[in-house]
Design a protein around this nucleic acid. Structure first.
Lengths: 143, 143
DNA sequence: GTTATTGCAAACATTTTGCAATTAA
DNA sequence: TTAATTGCAAAATGTTTGCAATAAC
């Protein structure tokens, strides 16, 4: 199912600003802040308003089409969500962001913590950060 | 080692505003935003400036004395860091925040992801959220 | 044709900075 | 005594809102 259908299905519209934002995110290999997305749209000659970026990101996040990436300092990075449940791996140095899956191990941990604390857990945030292959190479050269 | 020593050791000082902030965090059972910390200090008749709260939180976070909690919306919640490596469990409803440990299982996951992606991982963010025992009780009553 | 969506301008909120005065060591 | 730290006031930054005009369906 494409974006057009996904939105129309809910009575929402695939507008010009929304297309532009999707396009920017598709081309990005790092998470981008609202400001950065706006700037890249302008650079691509898509004249959209910053306000629409904010509103679109909020909407798309709610719909699960886009995901927020939490950095140590920056927490307003957005990436396109791939289908299913994923987690992020972020490069400290260049901000490259990769999604990964296959974390079945968590369920036993969750059960354990629920028993220990009495909480009912229904959401989790797991994110790793380090150096991507490219940046490792650059660091090696400097040594 | 207490706060006094930890700071003096690095040529830093345990000042009145810093004491007040520590005191607020010690009494809190949820993570608190800079604004909230400031307000609680005033409420406790500790007249400190909001600016000092920002500066102190930044410093203490760098020193690992305080930790930032990343919510879905709010990412500026701070809690006192207990020694060692911990993770957070946050209540959706009342924001109660608990630290938990015992996540040795992650290391094998990390190795797996490093092999799969070529990244070198040196930091991670793991956070669960759900309902704390108190809020579960309240929900039950409403049903 | 209908109504979701846009973009502006302005309100609002949050965070950072320079700098003289203060205070912890 | 001396240097880290504070707090003010102001600047910079980031986000949200109301509303008339527009464009997607």
């Amino acid at each position: 199912m494409d974006w057009q259908e996904k939105l129309n299905q809910k009575g929402l519209r695939l507008t010009h600003p929304r297309r532009a934002i999707i396009s920017v995110l598709e081309r990005a290999d790092t998470s981008l802040s609202p400001q950065a997305i706006h700037q890249r749209s302008l650079d691509a000659n898509e004249e959209i308003g910053l306000v629409s970026v904010y509103r679109t990101l909020e909407l798309f996040t709610e719909l699960g089409l886009v995901r927020r990436v939490h950095g140590h300092s920056e927490c307003q990075g957005y990436v396109l969500a791939s289908p299913g449940h994923h987690h992020h791996l972020v490069c400290h140095s260049c901000d490259a962001t990769v999604e990964f899956s296959g974390v079945e191990d968590l369920s036993s941990l969750i059960t354990h913590i629920e028993e220990e604390t009495g909480f009912t857990i229904n959401e989790h945030l797991l994110q790793f950060s380090g150096l991507c292959p490219d940046c490792q190479r650059k660091t090696d050269i400097r040594d």
